[in-house]
Design a protein around this nucleic acid. Structure first.
Lengths: 239, 239
DNA sequence: CTTCATTTTTGGTATAGACCAGAAGGGCGG
DNA sequence: CCGCCCTTCTGGTCTATACCAAAAATGAAG
């Protein structure tokens, strides 16, 4: 798989990357349109797009559907072992976090959820869907499930902040253990729509299960992140 | 960004995905060629490729340059907080790990490495480049740097196994702390070539810094993973 | 000023055709 | 049997064109 350095789209890619690295185009700024990038220099739009796709995979640029290509802001650093919640760690990095609650409903425990929570199928659960943004750009959508028996009337509390602190202050439920799974994925229909990206774009699937001191599942959370919005950082002392 | 379900390439994608999910095509098996997938049903090769790219992003299939598309094997689970080394945790999952040493050289400490190791620029260091595979498929390339003063004559030891255990048994150096950073990236020229993938494909960049009990940097390791080869899993007790 | 409808621009999808370099396979000669 | 060459197949790149739907810009009307 040797590469001859002479591929057309790689040249286009590097030219654009240079303009970004050189500060000519700043984070959040819009790139010239694909047709403008052709300039007339005998390059097909498909070739321009190939270059843009590469930069997108690198996290250098992102797109808004039918609006244009934009320079990506720096990613948020996330340490799964330190659990302060989205709002505080984004703020700690000098960024502006926001949360929107997309829906909150009471559901019946499904066959998938039952073994996770150790509760019978049909038991009442709360499901909360939220979208979280950094500096106005949506970076993740999440679906949280909580056992209704542990936190009755949860949905009447404010849900646009830290759910963990609501559970602690209103129900005296403390998280003692966290299990986090992460895997690259493609964003499908539902998540892509909520993140306002094209379906099929790469993303990161983060599944977090929180347990209390008795080992009961407090919170089951599935998050879909934009692949370019996150940087994972873990610092551990070996026992 | 509503999507009308009627897009041609999504239909093609789902048809192929169904054949894989249905067991007609098994992990490691080769898909029919792009031109064969056109069948004559009035679909352009570009549309077929669009569908294949999506499945690739999802980790369902992967490609070998100019050879064909293949069904992906399941990913390896990796827990950055548990540090047994590549060989043992891959084996523990019933897979066959292999390591090749691509190069091993003594280098002078660079301006980038100097502050990491707390050593002057020009100090002798060892640099080891390795490629690691699972069941015969290359999944990562890594570049390890070790301070030569801490592990004199390191390069004469066998390097195709666990480096950590070599450091421990031969030099009595134990890792007390690990720092791991992970970020989605695009695989560039060098890594892509070593992994035998096309340059620009998405990957995961893992940077691990290991410290001993005195806080000295024992090992600085930069890994580039295929994006579809890895699943990250962390389990932590909250203090 | 705001509001609403229209036009323009933009990226998204799709077709068709072309050529290339590398992989794979077959056959030939040793 | 092995090794080498040549052909075939395959994905990789690129051009050119076309049409669509959504976003953005524009302009008219209130």
């Amino acid at each position: 798989m040797t590469q001859p350095d002479s591929l057309h789209y790689l040249g286009v890619r590097d030219a654009i990357a240079a303009r970004i690295a050189g500060g000519e185009l700043k984070p959040g700024e819009r790139l010239p349109s694909e047709r403008q990038l052709q300039v007339g220099g005998g390059v097909a739009r498909g070739t321009i797009r190939e270059a843009l796709f590469q930069l997108e995979a690198e996290g250098v640029i992102y797109r808004k559907d039918r609006s244009g290509w934009y320079v990506s802001p720096p990613p948020v650093v996330y340490d799964p072992t330190r659990w302060e919640g989205f709002m505080s760690y984004v703020e700690a990095q000098g960024r502006r976090p926001t949360t929107e609650t997309l829906s909150k409903t009471e559901i019946a425990c499904t066959p998938v959820l039952a073994p996770i929570f150790g509760r019978p199928v049909g038991a009442p659960m709360y499901r909360i869907r939220r979208r979280r943004s950094v500096d106005g750009r949506a970076v993740l959508v999440e679906t949280i499930v909580v056992d209704a028996a542990m936190a009755p009337d949860l949905l009447s509390h404010p849900l646009d902040g830290s759910l963990t602190s609501v559970l602690k202050s209103a129900y005296n439920i403390a998280v003692a253990r966290n299990r986090v799974d992460m895997q690259p994925c493609a964003l499908t229909r539902g998540e892509a729509e909520a993140l306002q990206v094209k379906s099929g774009l790469p993303g990161l699937n983060v599944v977090r299960t929180s347990y209390d001191a008795q080992g009961r599942v407090v919170e089951f959370d599935r998050e879909y992140w934009r692949h370019d919005a996150l940087k994972i950082s873990v610092d551990i002392r070996v026992r």
